[in-house]
Simulated scan of single mutants.
Amino acid sequence: MHEFAHMQGSEAAFRQAEFAERQTRAGRAVREAGFEALIVTSPETIYWLTGRQTAGYFAFQALILPTDGAPHLLVRRLEKPGAVANTWLADIAAYEDGEDPAEALARLLGALGIACPAMELGGWFVSPLLAARIAASLKLEALPDGSTLLPPLRAVKSPAEIDAIRRAATYAEAGMRAGLEACRAGSDENAVAAAMLGEATRAGSEAMAMEPLVSSGPRSGLPHMTWRRRQLEAGDPIFLELAGSHARYHAALMRSAWIGPPPAEARRMMDCALRALDAALDAIRPGAPCSAPHEAAQRVIDADGYTAAFRKRIGYSMGIAFAPDWGEGALLSLFSGVDRPIEPGMVFHLPATLRSYGVWTVGASETVVVTPTGAEPLSSLPRACAIL
C-alpha cells in the first residue's frame, strides 16, 4: 500500500480506536467459535469492522479476520486507493480485472498460513458458485459457515454510531417535511420524490441504501411501491417513506397523507395504526424480549379487526446499510419468537402500517434509540395522517 500511504484514514468515518475495538470483539467471537479465521464478505460487516465503503462493492471484496491481530482486506485493484483512504488497515491486497478473485483470495490465505477459515456464506454478495470456487482453490470440499458470528455484535450501537443515526434522522425528517409539502392536486409522484430527495440531501444526507417510497391513489395500497409519474388528484391517499444516511448509518421515517378528507374507514384504520405504534413504543424496555413490541402492537390490531391488514413484523434494527436495503432487518427483528433481550443502544425502525390492498395504506413510523428507560423517537414530525 506504499504508493497510497499518505491517504490512509483520510476518508474514515470514525476514529481508528472505534474500529480497533470492533475488530477485537469480532476476533474473540471467531476464536470462541473454534475457527482460525473468518472470511467476511457482506459490505455492511466489512464496513462495521474497517470503514471500507464504496459504490463499487458490486465487485468481489473480502476481509480476512484472524482471531488475533489486524484484518487483511482483498479488493479489486481499482478500489485500492479508496480502501486505503476509507480505512486504517495496513494490509490491503488487490486483484486485477480478469483475475479470478477466488484464486487471489486463496493465495492471500496461503501467504497468511490460514488453511481452513470459516466464511460468511449467508450474505447476498457471494453466490454459491463463487463460494464453491473459493473452497476448491483452498482444496477444501466446503468452507465452514460463519455467517452468524458477527451480526449479534452489531445490534448494540456505540455512542459514535448513535450520533451518526441521530444525524441521519434529521435528514430524513427534512426530506419527509418537503415531501408532504409537495403533495397537492395537480402535482405528481416524481415531484414529491424530487422534493424528498433534494431536501434530505441539502440537509446533509449521503447516498441512501434504498430509494424513497412514494405512491398515491390505489398504488399506495401496494407495499414498497415508488414513484411512477402518476398525477395527484383530489381524494388521493399518499404513502411516503424514506431514510436519511450519515456515514452509511440510516434512520427511516414513514408518513401517510390524504388530499382532502379521508374516508371513515381509513380514519379508523389510521387511528388503530397509531395506537398500535404507541403500544409498541411503550413495550420497548431494556430486558424485554424483542417479541414484546410486536405482540403489543398485534393485540391492538387484532382487537380492532385489522389482522389481515397487517401481517408483518412491527419493526427491525437500523444501522449500517448498503443497497438494496436501508435496514438491518436480517440482523434483528421486533417480531414473534425473537427472544433476544432489548438492550440500551439498540436502534429500531417501527413502521406501523395497515393496508386496504390496492386501495390505500395508512400509518406512521419512528426510528428510535433504546435508552435505559425506554424508546426515544428521533423525529418530532406529527404522526397523524396529513390532510392536505
Rank of each mutant, 00 (worst) to 15 (best):
G123E: 11
F125T: 14
D145L: 10
P144R: 02
L130T: 12
R133H: 09
F125P: 02
G123K: 12
L140S: 02
A135Y: 06
L140D: 10
C116A: 14
F125Q: 14
K139Q: 14
F125D: 15
F125C: 10
K139M: 08
A132E: 13
M119D: 04
L143S: 07
L138D: 00
A142Q: 14
P117N: 07
L129W: 10
S137V: 00
G123P: 05
E141S: 12
A131V: 07
G146W: 10
E120S: 01
K139W: 12
K139V: 01
F125W: 10
G122Q: 04
A142L: 10
V126W: 06
K139D: 14
A132V: 03
P144W: 13
W124S: 06
L138E: 00
G123V: 10
F125G: 01
G122W: 05
A135P: 13
G123T: 12
S137R: 09
L129P: 00
A131P: 07
L138S: 05
G146R: 04
A118C: 03
A136H: 07
W124M: 14
M119C: 15
A136D: 07
M119A: 15
R133F: 00
A142V: 03
E120W: 07
L143F: 14
C116P: 00
E120F: 03
G122D: 14
F125A: 13
I134H: 07
E120V: 01
A142I: 02
A135L: 09
L138N: 03
A131Q: 11
A135C: 01
W124Y: 02
L138V: 05
G122R: 08
S127W: 13
A131T: 12
L130D: 12
F125I: 04
A132D: 13
L130M: 15
D145R: 14
A136S: 14
A135D: 08
S137Y: 00
C116S: 08
D145F: 06
R133M: 01
I134N: 02
L143A: 09
E141V: 07
L130Q: 13
M119R: 04
K139S: 12
G122P: 08
A142M: 05
I134R: 04
K139G: 08
